Computed example of a mutant assay.
Amino acid sequence: MKLAFVLDRLDSIKIEKDSSFAMMREAASRNHQLFVMQQGDLVWKDNRVTGFCHELILLDPIEEKYRWYQEGAAEAIPLQEFDAVLMRKDPPFDIEYVYSTYLLEFAERQGAFIVNSPRSIRDHNEKIAITEFPQFIPPTLITRQESLIRSFLEMHQDIVLKPLDGMGGASVFRVHRADHNISVILEMLTHYGTRTIMAQRFLPDISKGDKRILLIAGEPAPYALARKPKPGETRGNLAAGGIGTVQRLSERDLEIAKTIGPLLDKRGLLLVGLDVIGDFLTEINVTSPTGMQEIAKQTGFNVAGMMVDALEKRIHSRQ
């Protein structure tokens, strides 16, 4: 197969934990041909969507941190000539990201197979998407109105506030009823009432970990990566210093995954990361879910292999 990955700069990728690298390594082990491009390499030209791509050769053994690959010369290749194009650009989900999804969606109409579906990526804000499944979520408020947020805080006493376009735990605040900084926090997060944010009741089970459950073709991997906050912190995100511990899915985890997975798969979301704290769904990650390498290292379960299996099956079904 001929696979293209839309990524951040290769020299910025942390290969010891990056899920895109795990997928590329697995695909290369099966003799699939790899190409890479950045977001800015996607262009509309001559009535089709083209990627200015580089063929990628993974080095074995890896020579050093930034010498794990060789790149070929840039080639202009229409996206429909690949067996699959995997959109793995990390957030922020800004206007440039939206423009990329428009280009990828047009390539899809020309016959390209894009993972994940660009329209579904646009339609599933990673915070707001949970509202489709109210039976699984904690008490949640989405608003830009300070009075409503203050009333929500008064009701629940201890809440978490977060922007709708953040990642890695950035700008996430835990606020208590007696917090003297609530006004300035709300001013900053809502930009004085001009930006919508999310408020959720604080979940004490965060101390046991913010579980990342990976869904592949609608089915959950059997293990979750529980990201536990470091001392003095309430965010479990690895980017915020959380410690990742792998555990088997609980009955509740499976209930959530088995309910949501098939529906998202039908929408073209082949790879999804659910965030679950205790028994509650808190986010649905559809841009570039990670956690594959941590699960593989701690359990031996090859999540990247599960992903490439699903990718091969979908490609063959299209032929």
Score class of each variant (00 low, 15 high):
Leu274Gly: 03
Val43Ser: 13
Gln80Gly: 10
Gln135Cys: 12
Ala170Tyr: 14
Gly241Glu: 07
Ala84Asp: 09
Arg9Ser: 13
Val286Tyr: 12
Val36Gln: 03
Lys297Phe: 08
Asn181Asp: 14
Arg109Pro: 02
Pro222Asn: 02
Met167His: 09
Val172Ala: 07
Ala84Arg: 07
Tyr223Asp: 00
Phe133His: 11
Glu187Gly: 09
Arg88Tyr: 12
Arg227His: 05
His156Asp: 10
Thr190Arg: 04
Asp11Glu: 12
Leu254Val: 06
Gly278Gln: 08
Arg122Gly: 01
Thr196Cys: 12
Ile13Ser: 01
Asn181Tyr: 14
Glu219Gly: 08
Arg150Pro: 04
Gly218Gln: 01
Lys313Asn: 11
Glu75Gln: 15
Met167Glu: 09
Gly193Trp: 05
Met292Ser: 07
Phe136Cys: 13
Asp18Lys: 02
Tyr97Met: 15
Ile121Phe: 06
Leu34Phe: 09
Tyr69Trp: 06
Ala28Lys: 15
Glu146Asn: 10
Ile142Thr: 05
Ala129Gly: 06
Ala239Asn: 12
Glu255His: 06
Phe52Ala: 15
Arg201Phe: 01
Leu10Glu: 05
Leu161Tyr: 02
Ile121Cys: 02
His32Leu: 14
Ala226Ile: 04
Ile130Trp: 03
Gly166His: 03
Gln110Leu: 13
Leu59Arg: 14
Ala224Pro: 00
Ile315Asp: 01
Ser100Val: 01
Leu274Arg: 03
Ile114His: 00
Asn47Arg: 12
Asp83Ala: 06
Lys228Leu: 11
Thr131Trp: 05
Gly209Phe: 03
Arg227Gln: 09
Gly169Asn: 04
Glu63Leu: 11
Gln298Ala: 13
Glu283Ile: 12
Arg318Gly: 10
Glu294Pro: 06
Leu148Phe: 04
Ile121Tyr: 04
Leu10Pro: 00
Phe133Gly: 09
Val303Trp: 03
Pro61Asn: 04
Thr287Asn: 10
Met167Asn: 08
Phe106Ala: 08
Ser151Thr: 09
Leu7Ala: 06
Arg144Cys: 13
Lys162Ile: 08
Glu108Ser: 15
Leu161Arg: 00
Ala178Asn: 15
Gln319Gly: 09
Asp60Leu: 09
Ala112Thr: 03
Ser12Cys: 08
Val36His: 03
Ile121Ser: 00
Phe136Leu: 11
Gly300Asn: 10
